[in-house]
Amino acid sequence: MNLLTEPIGVSHYLIVGAIMFVTGALCMATKRNALGVLMGIELVLNGANVNFVAFGSEYLRPGAVSMGLDGQLIALFVIVLAAAEAAVALAIVLNFYNNHSSVDVDKADELKG
């Protein structure tokens, strides 16, 4: 199968989305820097977005099976919510840094401000 001459399908997008999702999940699991965890979350959301857009694309799935615009709309909501989530998480991280002089998530085990 020659990738340069054959058309692209939904499954290609799903593969990309899967790789991004897994790297993001691993980032969340392995990084000790709180901001690294945040970046992992962004990658996970982004991988999910790739899937949504691929399923909603009229271009990749012509015909009645397409989700229509739902995929793109959900992707839009995900992007907006990711921005909101990043703002709050960043505020929390900076607060944590101010109080503890550290961004190591392993240090955040006191349960008390």
């Binding site: 054959e6 692209i8 499954s11 799903l14 799935r61 012509p62 015909g63 099976v65």
Partner: peptide
């Protein structure tokens, strides 16, 4: 169904 199809 997710395989590539020729785009209309």
């Amino acid at each position: 169904a997710w395989r590539p199809v020729a785009v209309a």
